[in-house]
Write a protein that binds this DNA or RNA. Structure first.
Lengths: 334, 334
DNA sequence: CTGTTAGCGCATTCAC
DNA sequence: GTGAATGCGCTAACAG
């Protein structure tokens, strides 16, 4: 039924070793016979079996990608960067959603390893000892994508979330705001949650503003939670004049909450966030945000992984990509 | 270095066949020895090699997914549906972006087939003879996801795009609009382009309205192209009063174009689209749209594929999921 | 219930 | 340049 390398060999009147050579572009084949083999391949409609090849060569040219949620625009953009570079280096990717749930993450890491992926790209929540444990059971290279581990022992590529948040809040402060609220994520989330919150606090301190816990609400990164948080701020006896959101989507929720209550952005409230997803320019007023290069994070981490897989020596195993604040219309001066 | 089934067998004092049985949950193993084997597995840290298993069993428990662009919210949502169900049935997915480019599609289909996927989910542009050709070279089941082939020979799951567009335009007509513009996609695109355009025309005809080609613009599904198209309509000597957009994103572009020109939605213009992505409720005014069940399309197509892979007989190989118009705030009466 | 024996389709020595 | 032989790690009959 299925035509194998052996069939091709017989058809071409050569050995399977030779067929293997031409299929793998080994130069040690006379052009003459190479041609014969190609013709036989064509005639028989031979298609190499990558699984057999993987077993024999111990290389599958596929990498595993564990991602929190592919339907989240941010991660989807990272994934696109990963896939583009993977494709460029002739790797395929096995994609697994893990929703930042530790057990699910551990589980998919293991099945990915069973599938003998040549490398692993991990995008998730906190990197715990259990993760490290799971990583250690294999000897394929791993790179953390849009996350970091505390000890910094694993290669990773990300932005400096703390600094990004700091810069966002600073631009608010520079505009004269002194009462700045924050809509954050759970502190369990090291990057989007904890670090961005730390950046917020540091920005306040640096400028001599006092931190007020009534001015921070924790959301779940979704639009609705941004609106809810904003509602809370609007109900405060003394309202802040600006809000920093850990993500675009919550920021947009906040903007609409403000508008739905008859107030205006940026006249009555300034809002800024971190992300700069495509949605940022798809709202009115357009959202000012600290840009996080999602696509590049994916692309660079995949590129790093290819190097690791080829056992090339990499100088920089922990890369921090730059962020930048892009001002649009949602921030005004006080 | 790597511990194999043979090592486990020796450690447990049984044959490799027995180890294979317990690993595969074959009931024909005495609980006694099953326990011994599990202990040996634990002690040695054995991890089954899925590649070897795949070669021996001719099943890889992975399916290939060709998708136009994972960074597009619509497709990402479909992908999530696919992955969830795949995961439920213990399949993994290899994800390949193909940008609706025919050659790229053909190419990834072939590499997916080389990787011996157990099934293929195809999401793309038109299904040409070349595609059929490529599909035919393998005997794994294929299902078209959010697309259909003309002859209807391949299993597929999608909505009725023509009817969805028809319904969208009809709701505009019911509100008293008689001059309705359309922002569409390229007619080369069978689902989002051609079919939705056909639905638009039929709705006009059905209601005795005349089709005016000056009232239709072709966009590229992105926000900016929606705005540009709308700009064109605004510049017309006699403006339409409503616009139907083939996608949410272009509709939002149109809304903002209207607003940026000092006009109002729905007071001056009504707008409706097909998709109903999460963004629809993240604009002001909130977008009315015909809902297309993206997640379900993915989930159902994956479910269908699992049946096909198990060689279960499926009664309905061409499933058309229902759509529904959800009215929000962007449509008003004339 | 358990062990023996063959491959699965290919890459890879090692000879020639 | 090319061929013969071996094994990658596992499943699948087939015996017993």
């Amino acid at each position: 039924m299925t035509v194998t390398i052996y069939d091709v060999a017989r058809e071409a009147g050569v050995s399977m070793a030779t067929v293997s050579r031409v299929v793998n572009n080994n130069p040690n084949v006379k052009p003459q016979t190479r041609k014969k083999v190609f013709e036989a391949i064509e005639r028989l409609g031979y298609r190499p079996n990558a699984v057999a090849r993987g077993l024999a060569s111990k290389k599958t040219t596929t990498v595993g990608v564990v991602i929190p949620d592919i339907s989240n625009a941010i991660f989807a953009e990272v994934a696109r960067g990963i896939e583009d570079i993977a494709n460029m280096y002739h790797y395929n990717i096995i994609l697994c959603n893990a929703d930042k749930k530790k057990d699910k993450e551990i589980r998919v890491i293991n099945t990915l390893l069973e599938k003998q992926v040549d490398g692993l790209l991990f995008m998730g929540g906190a990197v715990t000892d259990e993760h490290l444990q799971a990583f250690r059971t294999s000897n394929v290279p791993i790179v953390l994508c849009a996350t970091t581990d505390e000890n910094g022992t694993i290669p990773s590529v990300d932005i400096d979330h703390e600094a990004a948040a700091f810069d966002a809040v600073q631009t608010l402060i520079k505009q004269g705001h002194t009462s700045i609220a924050m809509i954050g994520g759970t502190l369990q989330d090291p990057a989007n949650g904890y670090s961005r919150f730390q950046g917020y606090k540091r920005a306040l301190e640096t400028s001599g503003l006092t931190y007020d816990e009534n001015l921070v609400r924790i959301g779940n990164y979704r639009y609705e939670s941004g609106a809810e948080a904003m509602k809370h701020f609007l109900d405060l006896p003394v309202r802040p004049t600006a809000v920093f959101s850990a993500t675009d989507e919550m920021a947009i929720g906040a903007i609409h909450c403000i508008q739905d209550n008859g107030l205006r952005v940026p006249d009555d409230f300034s809002v800024i966030s971190v992300d700069n997803s495509r949605m940022a320019s798809m709202v009115r007023p357009q959202l000012s945000a600290v840009a996080q290069p999602m696509y590049d994070i994916g692309a660079v981490s995949m590129r790093l992984l290819t190097k690791l897989m080829k056992k090339e020596t990499v100088e920089q195993a922990k890369v921090v990509l730059p962020h930048e604040v892009v001002m649009r219309q949602s921030v005004g001066s006080k």
